[in-house]
């Protein structure tokens, strides 16, 4: 790909991610349905994860044509190693994202199970009706 084209795609990705984050935050805070809140939550965390991946992609620091962080010539020469260091993609954000995805999977599985439980107990997943039911409920003991 031509460098200018790559830069354009990169910059539009950042704009898209910002929009994505804003829309998903609206979904989490303003949508009444718990299921939609959960979907918005996954979009939110995935947008942030994609952002982390973009941070590792060298274009954001002004490098051109990043390459995978793998030594392909064995044994490598000194010149080869310094070129790799200068142009390779940073693998650390990918490791961070992998961890973050696993954690958010666990949280999401729990929240989905909780939503299902709420549906069994109350017959609704609408946050407004749940708030109403809550307001009507009396103070209980243990």
């Amino acid at each position: 790909m031509m460098p200018d084209m790559a830069r354009f795609v990169y910059n539009s990705l950042i704009v898209i991610l910002v929009f994505n984050t804003a829309i998903s935050l609206y979904g989490i805070l303003a949508r009444p349905s718990l299921v939609k809140k959960l979907i918005a939550l996954t979009i939110f965390s995935d947008s942030l994860n994609s952002f982390a991946i973009l941070v590792g992609y060298r274009l954001c620091k002004g490098f051109e044509q990043p390459v995978p962080p793998i030594v392909t010539r064995i044994p490598p020469t000194q010149e080869h190693i310094s070129k790799l260091i200068a142009t390779a993609v940073d693998p650390l954000p990918q490791a961070l994202v992998l961890t973050a995805i696993v954690i958010s999977l666990a949280v999401l599985a729990f929240l989905a199970a909780l939503t299902l439980r709420i549906y069994y107990v109350s017959g609704t997943t609408d946050a407004r009706s749940l708030a109403l039911m809550r307001a009507r409920a009396a103070v209980e003991g243990e």
Partner: peptide, 21 residues
Amino acid sequence: DRLIALEASIKYGIIGAAATS
């Protein structure tokens, strides 16, 4: 089995997951 507890937990959980993100 207590709806209030479940509702409190989901409110805590959804915004909490967003906050940690």
